[in-house]
C-alpha cells in the first residue's frame, strides 16, 4: 500500500520513490490511462489526464494529496471489481 514510507524524514526521496513505485505499478496493472483517470476523478482527484500521464511517466511531481489518490485509485481498481 502507499501508506508505507509516508511521513518519514526524507520526504523528497520518499516522493521520488513513491513516484517510481506508482509508475511501475501502473505499467504492471496495464490499466488504460483513461480508466484510471476516471476512477481517480471519482474518488476526488483534481489533476487533469495529461498531468496524470506525465506523473506516471515520472516526468512530473504532484502534490501529496493527489499522489495518494492516484495510488489509492490503482489499489482499489486492482483489488477486484471496481464497483
Amino acid at each position: 500500500m502507499y501508506s508505507e514510507g509516508t511521513g518519514g524524514p526524507e520526504e523528497l526521496n520518499d516522493a521520488a520513490e513513491q513516484r517510481r513505485g506508482a509508475a511501475q505499478r501502473f505499467r504492471d496493472t496495464e490499466l488504460p490511462l483513461v480508466k484510471l483517470w476516471t476512477y481517480y476523478y471519482g474518488i476526488g482527484g483534481d489533476i487533469d489526464e495529461v498531468s496524470l500521464d506525465a506523473y506516471l511517466n515520472e516526468a512530473l511531481d504532484l502534490p501529496a494529496a493527489q499522489v495518494g489518490l492516484i495510488t489509492t485509485a490503482m489499489a482499489e481498481m486492482t483489488e477486484g471489481d471496481t464497483e
Partner: peptide
C-alpha cells in the same frame, strides 16, 4: 483545507480496509 480532508479520507480508507467511496 481540501488536501487535509482528502488525506483524512485516505487514512480512514486504509485503516478500515475499505474504499474511499464507501467511507465518503
Amino acid at each position: 483545507g481540501r488536501d487535509g480532508a482528502l488525506e483524512l479520507l485516505q487514512l480512514a480508507a486504509v485503516s478500515s480496509n475499505r474504499r474511499i467511496q464507501q467511507i465518503a
